[in-house]
Design a protein around this nucleic acid. Structure first.
Lengths: 146, 146
DNA sequence: ACGAAATAGTGGACAAAGTCAACTAAATTT
DNA sequence: AAATTTAGTTGACTTTGTCCACTATTTCGT
């Protein structure tokens, strides 16, 4: 890794930070915050997670998470069920209402992306996705502990 | 753009959001916030910007920016000089202290990146950078207004 | 088996980040 | 010359996020 590599990566970070901002814009007009949606995503895609499982996936302060989950429960988006095995742990699950809310956000997100990239041809999209997965592969390799 | 493309892009966003978090980690232990560093970056790389110029570059609320700049001035990181031409506008410039502070952060950021990607060979870095710039080119094309 | 240490989650108090609307002053439009 | 727009500031506020101390379990070391 030389100085040029580093500069290119930094430029990309600045650039892509803006892109992510654009892609998250639909959330600003929803009733949820970014971390809330990110948490819903995890709960939607994994059955029976605990708060700790969520923390393992996304970098979030546990007390902040606790508060968000409390809010979810209050609004009937999730059920909290004590895990039988470990009495400290609590199993979380989206209610039908919670699932529906997430799906609405999810659809909006898809639409946002489709709009943002509408100028690209199918061929260009293929190219984009190919590069994207190449990057992920490289980065994951470098991030592997040990 | 089809459903598969969209899913891949979203997965990349989630992934890369975490990467950005890792890359910004050094800022958490500095005396500055992320937006502050981002603003310093702009001031470092462009001479004689106004607050409006900064807003054109980064998406930030003008009153929030105003407060940050006020803090910078208080800590002698910038000079504010009324622009001769337009008496409403104020030219901003990093002081030597401001430049030095930014350079320190900048070095830390370089180091952070180098550490994060240390497992990649030079060849892999070349590959990474090539893909990165390809992505930027595609996205910029799609984002062009009109 | 028993005490010490670790883990799961919560709650209070607080700090940081960011927004909104109202405002002054200068510049531009009509 | 009045009306509108633009540059920037300020007060009051909300949202977002962190820190620390705490309870209740569970696991570890001996």
């Amino acid at each position: 890794m030389n100085a040029k590599h580093i500069q290119e990566i930094r430029a990309f970070n600045r650039f892509y930070t803006n892109i992510i901002g654009l892609l998250d814009r639909h959330i600003l007009h929803s009733n949820y915050s970014l971390p809330e949606v990110r948490i819903m995503f995890e709960l939607y895609h994994n059955r029976g997670m605990t708060a700790s499982d969520i923390i393992a996936q996304i970098d979030i302060d546990k007390s902040y998470l606790s508060r968000i989950l409390k809010g979810f429960e209050k609004n009937k988006l999730i059920n909290k069920v004590s895990s039988g095995i470990d009495k400290r742990a609590i199993m979380l699950q989206l209610t039908p209402k919670g699932k529906k809310e997430f799906e609405t956000l999810d659809k909006a997100s898809e639409k946002q992306i489709a709009t943002l990239f509408e100028k690209l041809s199918d061929k260009e999209c293929d190219e984009l996705v190919k590069k994207i997965s190449g990057i992920q592969k490289l980065l994951k390799k470098s991030l592997q502990n040990e």
